[in-house]
Design a protein around this nucleic acid. Structure first.
Lengths: 339, 339
DNA sequence: CTGAAAGCGCTTACAG
DNA sequence: CTGAAAGCGCTTACAG
């Protein structure tokens, strides 16, 4: 870099004042007379001066940065949450540092450890694998943290969809239609949300007296995506007596399953009913449009950021709120009574 | 915050050395005897000391932060690019600051201006609206910047898919099948990539001597999404003689269009052929699986970050490479010869 | 091989 | 209403 950017010192010199006066006009602190404020303002403008955020952070011990750790930014659900968190942060003059774990536990841990560096004023962790210990450690390091759709840790505030209930709703819908052989295509069971969805499925099956029909398929390598659903469904269709209905732990899994069903010469919902989870944009436009459980993603992100803001603004120890938001069943055309 | 985190000074005191010695062992610079290195290392470990990145940045004038400005992190294409950029950054010990414009020109401009602050060592701008002037200004401010899928600015290195060619390939495929009444569902024309896709479509139509059939539909409010395609297609189906084929500027638009076609009681590809652009994961699993033009997203992100790294490491003025990557037509089941 | 000095660009009391 | 002093936690020459 040849020429340096102007510093506060230069502004001060050109305006004929001290740096602290410049600092005061920049930050609108202290009492500065209109005349010097104007004069300094003019120099700032002419130099196109911007205060150096690093130097400022050095003194204030605040960076204005918020870390956002997500399992996979490529997921429609998580990218939506990221988008909403970023928007909320932006409105509050925070910037967001993105950490994308890519479903890699090691990567996730490394990201978490990076936060020990204290680059970031606060932290939103979405959909992390189980890291009770690590989370506790963040608390120790006094890094304000809120958890979204994670295994709740008593010490940390969290917000989550009521995943158990959502899964219950989905399964119950199928049961009420008269289905009994309902397979659950589970998500990644190293994630709390996936386990809760299994539980909701089990509870509904049990309440309808068909616990003997419980069948949870847990795909191994795939990650809540189209492939997962497609391959799992192919297996199911090949291996055993086909179920009359499928409850998938995510819409992408459901849509992948629909494809496998179509390729097998079967039809949704005539031969097999399918319900998803999330209500991603694609759900409404798939063929047939997918019955699913809608997550209140915007609200989740909004509440999470509000919680973080509270943590950031209180110096004491706020209580660790555990917020649970209700999902809603969205009926479309991928489900009907069994033939 | 009650207790402060340990500083280099404390480490030095406990280890009985000076801070610069600690600095040297932390950064593995200078010549430090094994014995003191060990001693210092032990103290660092016991205190769980981490160098303060802000203080370091203050001296080195490098933050290790890279800005990533995207039009909309919610888009399957852009979230994928973001994921790959983040991965590349992570491997090179950079962190990424996410700016999400959410299709809002004002928001985009504000983000760009935030970069003047110099929080960030470098910048990747993906799919921005036209900002030749702003980009030039970034150059003036000497913020290393690379453009991805933007209107290229001579001064700045850029990487992009050959969008014109991709659109040509898609349209030519339809023409070769025998289609003539081919409608193009365009993207947001304030974006260069959308305009290039229109051009490719026009060129193919012209080369096949059916320029008189050119029909470009430019949806107003929507953003390359399912809704866009759905509503545009409904309009087309209602208004005039239906085309025999549709080339959509994005897969989501194509899938939305497919839904509208299905709702009109028509069938893809029997009644209307549809081709998309991007090859997002959903394309393969939609019904029918979508013929589309695949963008080499990983390569795009990788090249972009490599370019940025060059900019970051060279102190001089590197030449502004304009890299263009070739897309490939992916044939699936949404196209066939006209009836 | 190790340490004393200077300084990065700000902000925060405090004095006047 | 404005300025002199101190300091945030490091790194970079440089001296010894």
């Amino acid at each position: 870099m040849a020429d340096r950017l102007p510093t506060m010192r230069e502004v001060a010199r050109l305006a004929g004042v001290s740096v602290q006066t410049v600092s005061h006009v920049v930050n609108q602190t202290g009492n500065i007379s209109d005349s010097t404020r104007l004069r300094v303002g003019k120099v700032i403008k002419s130099l196109n001066y911007r205060p150096n955020p690093i130097a400022r952070s050095m003194r204030t011990r605040e960076t204005g940065l918020v870390g956002l750790l997500v399992l996979d930014i490529t997921s429609p659900v998580l990218s939506r949450i990221a988008s909403e968190v970023e928007a909320a942060a932006f409105s509050s003059e925070y910037k967001v540092l993105l950490y994308n774990a890519r479903h890699d536990a090691r990567r996730e841990r490394e990201s978490l450890e990076a936060f020990a560096e204290q680059l970031v004023d606060g932290l939103v962790i979405v959909n992390a694998m189980d890291r009770g210990q690590t989370f506790a450690w963040l608390k120790d390091r006094r890094i304000p943290t809120v958890l979204v759709d994670c295994l709740p840790t008593p010490a940390l505030p969290s917000v989550a969809t009521d995943n158990e209930r959502g899964a219950y709703l989905a399964t119950e819908h199928l049961l009420a239609l008269g289905h009994q052989r309902i397979v659950h295509l589970a998500g990644d069971l190293s994630l709390e949300v996936a386990r809760l969805r299994v539980e909701g499925y089990r509870r509904a099956m049990s309440e309808y007296g068909v616990s003997d029909q419980v069948s949870v398929v847990t795909p191994a390598d795939y990650h809540w995506d189209y492939q997962t659903g497609y391959h799992a469904m192919r297996q199911i269709l090949g291996d055993r007596k086909a179920p009359t209905a499928v409850f998938a732990a995510a819409d992408q899994v459901a849509i992948g399953a629909c494809r496998a069903i179509a390729e097998a010469g079967l039809e949704v919902p005539r031969d097999i009913s399918v319900v998803g989870f999330d209500d991603i944009p694609a759900a409404q436009f798939s063929s047939p449009p997918l019955t699913t459980v809608r997550q209140p993603l915007k609200a989740i992100a909004g509440r999470a950021f509000d919680l973080l803001l509270e943590l950031l603004n209180e110096s004491g120890e706020p209580d660790a709120a555990q917020i649970v938001l209700q999902p809603v069943l969205v009926l479309r055309n991928s489900t009907r009574r069994p033939a």
